[in-house]
Amino acid sequence: MTEVALQAVELVRRIEGVVSHTLVNGIDLAVNRGEFVAITGPSGSGKSSLLYLLGLLDAPSEGEIMICGQPTSKLSETERADVRLTKCGFVFQFHFLLPEFTSLDNVLLPMRAAGRMTEGEMRERGLALLGSLGLGEHANKRPNQLSGGQRQRVAIARALANRPEIIVADEPTGALDTASTEQVFSILRDIADQGQTVIVVTHDPALAARADRRIHIVDGKIAEIIGRGEGGRVCEMAS
């Protein structure tokens, strides 16, 4: 039986104002552990908003998100930050690396924030991650000394630093050339194959087609699901 890494129930995200606007409108979704899910849809359809909700970057107006079976809607902002730190890894369209830090220091950042390892262990893991992504030689370079693809790979290494259950990527190849796009997507595919859950928002249908499941969003609702959609048992919460 497959473990459910992430589950969304009746998820709604509404922006209140003079004219209220619904970004995500009643989405139910379960993503299994080790599954590679691509979220697609036209611009403004709510796919990024859904991704931010799933990664606990944003809070839903209604509904519930369970990460490894743990409900999150009643968590405080600090508790949500803790879940993000340990359970989620983020990759954005732009690398968003800290410019004054080296590649290694950027990768060490989440580990240092979590404070669960010694400095030696953190450096060892950071170097191993960079090495596994072909960046061993660039560990001491700053972001402005790296190419776009290299920066994005450093961002992926940073996302993997705390061994999160879920990797959330918002158009990670949107600003890359074809070769780098292929490289980054292959890395994400490998991550999923190694048992971590990957949820990617992408505009590229060819890349989406390589995911285990493609969820097409229109007007904040799931319009279509392509691929396997099996339910499963909930994965155990790691402390």
């Binding site: 600090t78 930050a81 803790d82 879940v83 983020f90 800290l98 924030a113 979590a114 940073r158």
Partner: peptide, 16 residues
């Protein structure tokens, strides 16, 4: 501002 957003999104607490 961008770095602050990234640090927060990575899970660093606001007061930190």
């Amino acid at each position: 501002r961008q770095d602050i957003a990234i640090m927060k999104s990575l899970g660093m607490r606001e007061y930190a």
